[in-house]
Nucleic acid binder design. Structure first.
Lengths: 195, 195
DNA sequence: GTCTATAAGATGATAGAC
DNA sequence: GTCTATCATCTTATAGAC
């Protein structure tokens, strides 16, 4: 049965819990048993929904990629200009980081990449590639509309923004400094502003 | 017995192998058995040198912190100006990343921080703190000598550089793009140059 | 869909011989 | 310092009942 109003299917609950655990501990430090405990089920039940851990990992990153596009669509529809879109994109990560110390799922998985099942690592690559393209489009639109100015390609700016976001969260976690990420990214977009 | 010329003590060999494995797979994806296999010893022998995995982790990050200072001293003695020092600092990471796909040890451990033994996580915090201070001194010296120009504190610039380096390596690994890190960091320091 | 039961293997760690 | 032997525990995964 699927979820009814206000409830989530077991499958979705598994994905939610697994995502939270990976964003906190990484792929190799969570187990089917952790999931089963939180769900108050048995590990065999979790395996029913995702036969292997790699299956779960792939489904997770694939869903995360969908969420990225969903968030970007939502930001686009909110009617802000390209610079505002990037600000909201950053604010998104700031919220989850400060509220639950969660890094970007793909950021954590990237760190562990060589130890991941190949299909999971491939999905991570796809996510970053997607994010880069989406951000590049925003940079390009900003330049076209003359609300942003920068040298080099929109693609390069997108890459720098991605690196800045991921790196700032990573270092913030390592330093155990909750406001580090916000402090660092606050001024970052200023350099793109026109006028 | 300690190492004689050209050889390494078992303890040092353990540290070398463990560091490489963590930089590749992360803390939770390497085992005493992995070390024993490479050393052609038994796991009990590894435990003789480091009773627990946490002991090994702490020793590792502590040594890595020493290496950081050693590298920075070496760069300082090479006689380049502050901007050149930062370039060499970045080049250091570029070399290990491109030659062996190795991320910064503390970067990988930061990603897994909530799942690490507390003493290990504490050592990671210390490393990043140290690196930040050392880089801030270089930025300050560059400003004093008028070879670098920037707004804000040297500390903030150091943080941005750290985030950029760590984030660029992380994203480069996730994307499986060997030259990504170099491409991204190549132009980064340009903005600090005077004249 | 969830359960019990179970398997085969890995893991961190220790005792005690050499 | 390194070994054999052993431990309890955890991990991913499967078979088959309900």
């Amino acid at each position: 049965m699927n979820a009814t109003a206000g409830t989530l299917s077991t499958r979705d609950r598994i994905l939610d819990i697994a995502q939270r655990l990976i964003q906190s501990r990484g792929y190799n430090a969570f187990s089917f048993n952790d999931l089963a405990k939180e769900l108050k089920l048995r590990t065999a039940s979790v395996h029913y929904h995702f036969p292997t851990k790699a299956d779960l990992g792939v489904a997770l990153v694939r869903r995360y990629r969908g969420q990225l596009h969903h968030e970007l669509d939502w930001i686009a529809k909110s009617g802000v200009d390209p610079l505002g879109s990037l600000e909201q994109f950053i604010a998104m990560f700031d919220r989850t980081f400060r509220s639950s110390n969660a890094l970007c799922l793909s950021c954590v998985l990237s760190a562990e990449a060589p130890s991941l099942p190949k299909p999971v690592a491939a999905e991570v690559t796809r996510f970053i590639h997607d994010a880069e393209l989406s951000l590049a489009k925003i940079f390009a639109a900003g330049k076209r509309a003359r609300v942003m100015a920068f040298k080099g390609s929109p693609r390069t700016q997108a890459r720098m923004l991605m690196a800045m976001i991921q790196g700032a969260m990573l270092v913030a976690r390592g330093l155990r400094h909750r406001s580090y990420f916000r402090d660092m990214t606050r001024g970052y977009l200023g350099k793109y502003a026109v006028g």
